[in-house]
Lab assay of single mutants.
Amino acid sequence: KTVEVNGVKYDFDNPEQAREMAERIAKSLGLQVRLEGDTFKIE
């Protein structure tokens, strides 16, 4: 899975870890996480 923030992509081998990281980043920035294919987009 991939986490994308402001056009910057971070790859994770563990999908659960990617989801947790995406949620943590989104919460700290006051944004939403949206799953698009294999990418968690933070917008």
Rank of each mutant, 00 (worst) to 15 (best):
N6K: 06
P15I: 13
R34A: 06
G37T: 03
R34H: 11
T2H: 14
M21G: 02
E43Q: 11
V3M: 03
T39M: 09
A22T: 00
R19T: 04
L31A: 13
K1C: 15
D11N: 14
Q17V: 11
P15W: 12
L31I: 07
G30N: 07
R34S: 08
R34G: 04
E20P: 00
E16I: 10
F40R: 00
P15K: 07
E16C: 11
R19E: 06
K27P: 00
T2D: 03
E4A: 06
K27N: 13
V33F: 12
Y10M: 10
Q32F: 11
G37E: 06
P15S: 11
V5H: 09
D38R: 03
V3T: 01
K41E: 02
I25T: 06
V8T: 10
N6Y: 13
E43K: 07
Y10D: 01
E20W: 08
K27W: 09
L35P: 04
G7P: 01
Q32N: 11
L29F: 06
V33Y: 13
E43G: 14
F40N: 00
F12W: 04
E16F: 08
R19D: 01
S28V: 13
V8K: 12
V5I: 13
E36Q: 07
V8G: 03
E23P: 00
E43W: 10
Y10I: 09
A18T: 01
K27L: 14
K41T: 07
I42K: 01
T2Y: 15
R19Y: 10
K1D: 03
M21R: 04
G7W: 02
Q32T: 14
E4T: 08
A18I: 03
G30S: 04
K27A: 14
E36K: 03
Q17D: 14
K1Y: 15
V8Y: 10
G37M: 04
N6R: 06
R24S: 10
A26E: 00
D13Y: 06
E16A: 11
K9A: 07
G30E: 03
R24K: 13
L31T: 07
G7I: 02
L35N: 05
I42W: 01
V8C: 15
T39P: 01
R19N: 04
M21S: 06
K9C: 12
T2C: 14
E23G: 05
V33G: 03
E20K: 11
I42Y: 02
T39V: 14
E20M: 10
E43I: 14
A18Q: 00
R34F: 10
I42P: 02
K9M: 10
G30R: 05
P15F: 14
G7M: 03
E23K: 06
N14Q: 07
V33M: 08
F40P: 02
K41L: 12
K1A: 14
V3H: 02
F12T: 02
L35R: 06
R34N: 07
R24Q: 12
F12R: 02
G7S: 04
A26H: 01
V8N: 07
K41Y: 15
S28G: 08
E20L: 11
N6S: 07
E20Q: 11
G7H: 05
K41F: 14
N6V: 04
N14W: 07
E36L: 04
A22M: 03
L31C: 15
T39I: 14
R19F: 10
L29D: 03
E43P: 05
A26G: 06
D11G: 10
Q32E: 12
Q32H: 12
E36M: 05
I42F: 10
E23L: 11
D11H: 15
E20F: 07
V8W: 08
Y10R: 04
K41D: 02
K9T: 11
E43A: 09
G7D: 03
N14T: 14
